[in-house]
Measured scan of single mutants.
Amino acid sequence: CKPMSYEEKRQLSLDINKLPGEKLGRVVHIIQSREPSLKNSNPDEIEIDFETLKPSTLRELERYVTS
């Protein structure tokens, strides 16, 4: 899986911020299912740190927000 450039992460962040509330739950689910360290975090307060997410997680999020 190809790592994301800074610009791609920035765009992904903007795209996620534009999602309606009902789609954000899926974003949280994708992150929690792929990032063991965030599995028990509160979905309402999850802070997405794009620098610490795996490339595969970032690509999955990218696919979701652009679908």
Rank of each mutant, 00 (worst) to 15 (best):
V27L: 13
K23Q: 15
I48T: 04
G21I: 11
I30E: 05
V65E: 10
L24D: 12
Q11L: 04
L58R: 03
F50W: 08
P36H: 07
S13H: 10
Q11K: 11
L38H: 12
N17Q: 09
G21F: 14
G21D: 13
E45H: 15
I30F: 14
G25S: 15
Y6Q: 14
L53F: 06
L58I: 06
L38T: 11
H29W: 02
D49H: 07
L19R: 01
L61T: 07
E45Q: 08
R63E: 11
N17V: 03
E62Q: 15
P20L: 04
R10C: 10
R10G: 02
K39C: 10
I48H: 02
L12K: 00
I46S: 12
G21H: 15
D15S: 13
L61V: 14
G25P: 08
Y6L: 12
S41F: 12
E51F: 01
E47D: 12
P20T: 13
T52K: 15
R34M: 15
Y6C: 13
S5H: 03
P20E: 11
T57N: 02
K18Y: 02
L58T: 08
S13P: 00
L12Q: 01
F50Y: 13
S41Q: 11
N42A: 11
S37Y: 11
C1T: 08
S5P: 01
K23I: 13
T57R: 01
Y64M: 00
K39V: 09
Y64G: 06
D44M: 13
K18Q: 08
I48P: 04
S37T: 13
T52C: 04
I46E: 13
E45R: 09
I46L: 13
Q11Y: 00
S37W: 12
D44R: 12
P36N: 08
I48A: 07
S56K: 06
M4L: 12
L61E: 07
L58V: 06
S33K: 10
K18T: 08
I31G: 03
N40E: 06
S37F: 11
Y64C: 09
R63L: 09
S41C: 15
P36C: 08
S5T: 13
R59P: 05
S13K: 14
R63V: 08
G21M: 13
I31S: 02
M4N: 00
R26N: 12
K54C: 10
E7M: 04
L61Y: 02
N42V: 04
P55I: 02
S37C: 07
T66L: 09
E62G: 03
K2D: 11
K18W: 00
T52R: 15
I48F: 12
S37I: 04
D49M: 08
L14C: 10
N17M: 04
P3T: 06
N17E: 08
C1F: 09
D49V: 02
P3L: 05
E22K: 10
S56W: 04
K2Y: 05
N17P: 08
E7H: 06
L58Y: 06
S56E: 12
I16W: 02
T57E: 00
Q11A: 04
I31D: 00
R63I: 04
S33W: 00
L12A: 00
L24T: 06
L38M: 11
L24K: 15
R26A: 12
N40F: 12
E35T: 01
E22P: 11
R59K: 01
S5Y: 01
T52N: 13
I30Q: 03
S67C: 09
S33V: 03
I16K: 02
N42L: 12
R59D: 05
K9M: 10
Q11F: 05
K9G: 00
K9S: 01
E7L: 05
T57D: 02
F50M: 13
E47Q: 12
L19T: 01
T66G: 14
I48M: 07
S37Q: 10
K23C: 15
I30M: 11
N40D: 14
E35L: 03
E45W: 03
E22Y: 02
K18F: 07
Q11P: 00
L14W: 05
E60T: 04
L14H: 12
M4E: 02
R63S: 11
E35D: 06
V65T: 09
K18M: 03
V28P: 05
N40M: 11
E45Y: 05
R10K: 09
E47I: 08
K18I: 00
S67I: 08
R34W: 04
K9R: 09
E62Y: 06
E47A: 14
K39H: 10
P36D: 13
T57C: 02
P55A: 06
V27C: 05
S41V: 14
P43K: 06
Y64D: 07
L61A: 07
D44F: 08
S33T: 09
E35W: 01
R26H: 15
F50C: 10
S56I: 04
M4C: 04
G25T: 14
K2E: 13
I31T: 04
D44Q: 13
K39N: 12
L24Y: 15
G21A: 15
P55Y: 05
E7Y: 02
R59T: 01
E35Q: 02
K39T: 11
E62K: 11
T66Q: 15
Q32N: 13
R34A: 10
E60V: 07
T66R: 15
E45I: 11
K2T: 04
I30N: 05
H29M: 03
E60F: 04
Y64F: 12
E35A: 01
P43L: 12
L14V: 10
T66E: 15
L61M: 10
K18V: 03
N40Q: 09
L19N: 03
R63A: 14
S13E: 10
C1P: 14
Q32Y: 05
I30Y: 03
I31N: 02
D44N: 11
K54I: 03
S5Q: 00
L14A: 13
K23E: 15
L53A: 02
K39F: 08
L14E: 14
P3R: 07
K23T: 13
P3K: 10
M4P: 01
V28M: 15
S56D: 11
K54H: 07
I30T: 06
T57L: 01
T52Q: 13
S37G: 12
E47L: 12
L53K: 06
S37P: 06
L19D: 03
L53Y: 07
E8L: 01
P43H: 09
R10I: 07
M4H: 02
V65F: 03
E8G: 00
K54E: 10
K2C: 15
I46W: 08
N17L: 05
R34D: 03
S41A: 11
L38K: 08
S67G: 14
D44S: 14
I46R: 12
I31V: 11
F50P: 13
M4W: 04
E7R: 06
L58G: 08
E22Q: 07
R10W: 02
K54Q: 15
G25N: 14
L24Q: 11
I16Q: 00
S5C: 02
H29N: 15
I16N: 02
L38S: 04
N17R: 10
R59C: 06
M4S: 00
M4R: 01
F50H: 03
V28W: 15
P43W: 15
E22N: 11
E35C: 00
I16E: 03
R63W: 02
L14T: 09
S5E: 07
D15F: 11
K54T: 08
Y64P: 13
P55C: 07
S33Q: 09
P20Y: 09
D49L: 05
E51K: 07
P3C: 00
E35G: 00
S56H: 05
R59N: 02
T52H: 06
L12Y: 00
L61P: 06
L19E: 03
S5D: 06
L53V: 02
F50Q: 03
I30S: 00
K2R: 12
K18H: 04
I30H: 06
P20H: 10
E7I: 04
L58H: 05
K54N: 09
D49K: 09
Q32P: 00
E51W: 03
L58Q: 09
E22F: 06
K9L: 11
S67H: 10
P43A: 13
S5A: 00
S33D: 07
I16V: 06
S37R: 12
D15P: 01
I46C: 13
C1Q: 10
S56Y: 01
G25A: 15
K9C: 00
V65N: 09
L38R: 09
E45P: 12
I46V: 12
K2Q: 08
E60Q: 06
K9I: 09
S13V: 06
E45L: 14
R59H: 04
S37E: 13
N42R: 13
P43E: 12
L61K: 09
Y6N: 14
K39S: 11
P55R: 01
L12F: 00
L58F: 02
S37M: 08
Q32A: 06
H29L: 04
K18P: 03
F50S: 06
T66A: 14
E7T: 05
L61C: 07
P55M: 06
I46P: 07
K23G: 14
L19A: 01
H29D: 15
P3S: 09
E22V: 07
E22L: 03
I46Q: 13
E51H: 14
N42Y: 03
L12V: 01
D44T: 13
S13W: 05
S37N: 13
L58M: 08
R10N: 05
P55K: 06
L19I: 05
H29Y: 02
R26V: 09
T57H: 01
E62A: 08
S41Y: 14
L24P: 01
E8Y: 00
E8S: 03
S56Q: 12
M4D: 01
Y64T: 04
K2H: 10
V65W: 08
T52Y: 10
K39W: 06
S13C: 03
L19M: 08
